[in-house]
């Protein structure tokens, strides 16, 4: 009970602490719109021939003739009501666009993260148990390769090998085959939705579409995860309480898994939070290469079309997700490490 209370208190404290950061982001996106070249009114005008009177009219309705602080207050008010503005390219409210594309990005990022962890943790553990062995060097090589090759190159290479040469992967465009019927949008995650409606063929197709972009992203974040696991496990293995565990004759398995690994995963947890946030923001390129209908490619398209409202929305969304992810990591940390909740 007290543990739950403790977690609740931590969540509250963390949310409070993140308010200034969120406020900063809001201020930044607001200023972004004022600073970027171009008059928003010009974009909304009926045409290039719109007269001064019409422009002034638009400015007045948009509130652009008011003093900056007042505009900011209105902007925050709009945000509070969930109004992120209108996208000019899609003609829809930004919030609706983001909500529609968010599951695609989340599914890709989460799947890639799980994939990366499934690879990185065992590799990191093996490397730490046999430091400076051939295996350790092999892991180091793969990791280095993953970091140095840009994601769009990895993506194109994977497409070239698995789609063009081997023909194993499907056409790398989008989440579902253009001719297949998408499942009813229950959660928005295709893999889950297909399973829920029991469409195994559809699930397989969606999985096929997902695997290459997910691999591309996983390779990119393999390095920080595997290297951190290795370093952290190595240092824990050298600590006093591991010596204690061995001195009472515990089995190697128990020493490594229960005593060493649990302690070693604490710093890895922090890295996972950072990696996840980075992936969400950095998957713009992967989404482009694989024509993935996610928020990254949406924001990039909007930016190229000088359509600023979606960009603002994107930046805000990423900021909020960043805060949420850190919150979750922090709560997990408090559960795993009793020393945190003691303080």
């Amino acid at each position: 009970m007290s543990a739950l209370l403790n977690i609740g208190r931590r969540v509250g404290k963390h949310l409070l602490a993140s308010l200034p950061a969120l406020f900063g982001v809001v201020l930044f996106t607001f200023l972004l719109m004022r600073v970027l070249p171009g008059d928003p009114a010009a974009f909304f005008a009926s045409g290039p021939n719109a007269g001064q009177a019409e422009m002034a009219q638009i400015r007045e309705t948009m509130g652009l003739d008011r003093p900056i602080p007042e505009q900011f207050v209105r902007y925050v008010g709009d945000l509070a009501r969930g109004n992120l503005g209108q996208s000019m390219t899609t003609g829809q409210p930004v919030i609706a666009d983001l909500a529609e594309r968010m599951p695609a990005s989340l599914e890709l990022t989460l799947f890639a993260l799980v994939l990366a962890l499934a690879l990185a943790l065992p590799l990191g553990i093996l490397a730490a148990l046999r430091p400076n062995s051939l295996l350790d060097h092999g892991v180091r090589f793969v990791c280095t390769l993953g970091v140095c090759v840009p994601t769009f190159v990895t993506g194109l290479l994977l497409i070239y090998v698995f789609y063009y040469l081997l023909g194993l992967a499907p056409d790398p465009t989008g989440r579902v085959d253009i001719f297949a019927a998408p499942p009813p949008g229950i959660t928005g995650f295709l893999l889950i939705d297909f399973l829920l409606v029991g469409d195994l063929a559809g699930w397989k197709a969606a999985f096929g579409q997902l695997i290459l972009p997910a691999c591309t992203m996983a390779l990119f974040v393999l390095a920080p995860l595997a290297r951190m696991t290795r370093a952290s496990l190595l240092s824990v293995l050298g600590s006093d309480f591991i010596r204690t565990a061995r001195s009472v004759g515990m089995s190697d398995w128990r020493v490594v898994v229960v005593y060493a690994l649990r302690n070693a995963l604490l710093p890895v947890l922090t890295i996972i939070g950072i990696v996840f946030s980075t992936m969400l923001g950095a998957n713009v390129l992967v989404e482009k290469v694989f024509s993935w209908p996610g928020i990254g490619s949406y924001a990039l398209d909007a930016l190229l079309a000088s359509d600023y409202a979606p960009v603002q929305g994107f930046v805000l969304l990423i900021a909020v997700i960043f805060v949420m992810v850190n919150l979750i990591i922090d709560v997990l940390y408090g559960i795993v490490d009793p020393r945190i909740s003691l303080q």
Partner: peptide, 25 residues
Amino acid sequence: MKALRGAAISMVFQSPRTALNPIRS
């Protein structure tokens, strides 16, 4: 050695605070 350690020969170390696993009761 695993069979002997703890069952026949045991050790007590210095700096007891670090000699115990910090995240296990």
